[in-house]
Simulated assay, not measured.
Amino acid sequence: MKPSNLIAVAFAGLVLAGCGDRSVSSAETSQADGAPLDRQLDPAQVARGKAVYVAHCMECHGADGKGPPGDWRFRDAEGYFPPPPLDDSAHAWHHPTAVLLATIRDGSAPGQGRMPAWKGKLSEREMQDVVAYIKSLWSDPVYRLWQKMERQSLEP
């Protein structure tokens, strides 16, 4: 197996491991709910990302990242996972920025979904912009949990 395929298979395992039915409990979200949340998202970047999303992502992932009808957690008749919602109702927020960008750049892992690789079709800036837009869709409690996970992913 080529190293690039091995990486893709390992990546798919990591993505699917984080895709379980995970609800956010009130204990998890009550920690800092009263504190103002500074998402540090550039409004211009979010607006650019929304435009990229509408042009390239919305057809599969739905308006406002709500996903298509049906349950994204179950494979279809051909054995592929449908496109998941990208708001905080699914698993996108379980992944650090680097994983979200890699998924956009490289597409679905073989045999997992039908998402195409956007590398060479979207610029790096456009991919970063769309990730900023996706993050803007998450509620404050979920965004707080994501920030904690993101910080942990960046620790050596």
Rank of each mutant, 00 (worst) to 15 (best):
P116H: 09
R105Q: 12
V130K: 06
E78V: 10
K119I: 04
P43T: 01
D106A: 06
T103S: 15
A90Y: 07
V54G: 01
S25G: 08
G120T: 11
V131T: 02
D71R: 13
E28S: 10
P84Q: 14
E59D: 04
L37Q: 03
R114K: 15
D71S: 12
F74P: 00
V52H: 07
S23T: 09
R48P: 02
G49R: 03
R73L: 03
L86W: 00
M127Y: 07
D71K: 11
R73K: 12
Q45M: 06
L37V: 03
D129R: 10
G65I: 05
R73G: 05
C60D: 05
V46K: 01
R39F: 00
M127I: 05
D21W: 02
M58E: 15
M127H: 05
P82W: 09
I134L: 08
A90G: 11
V54P: 04
Y133G: 02
L86I: 13
A63P: 04
A63S: 12
Q112V: 15
A51Q: 13
T97Y: 10
R125E: 15
E124P: 14
A102Q: 15
V130F: 06
T103W: 04
P85A: 09
K119V: 00
T97Q: 13
I134G: 02
R125Q: 15
K66I: 05
A132L: 06
W118E: 01
R39A: 10
V130M: 06
E28A: 09
I134S: 01
E124D: 15
F81C: 05
G111C: 14
P84T: 08
A92F: 11
R48A: 09
Q128K: 14
L37I: 07
A51L: 06
A47Y: 11
W93A: 05
D33R: 13
M115L: 07
L37G: 00
P68L: 05
H94F: 08
P82V: 02
H94C: 03
R114F: 02
L86Q: 01
A44D: 09
S23Q: 11
G111H: 13
C19R: 15
R39P: 00
A98C: 07
Q112L: 13
G79H: 07
G113F: 09
R105I: 03
R75L: 10
H61T: 05
G20H: 12
W118G: 04
W72Y: 15
D21V: 07
R75A: 08
W93M: 00
P36W: 03
V24C: 04
V54N: 12
D21T: 00
D106H: 14
R105W: 01
A92I: 12
P85M: 10
K50T: 00
Q112R: 14
E126D: 15
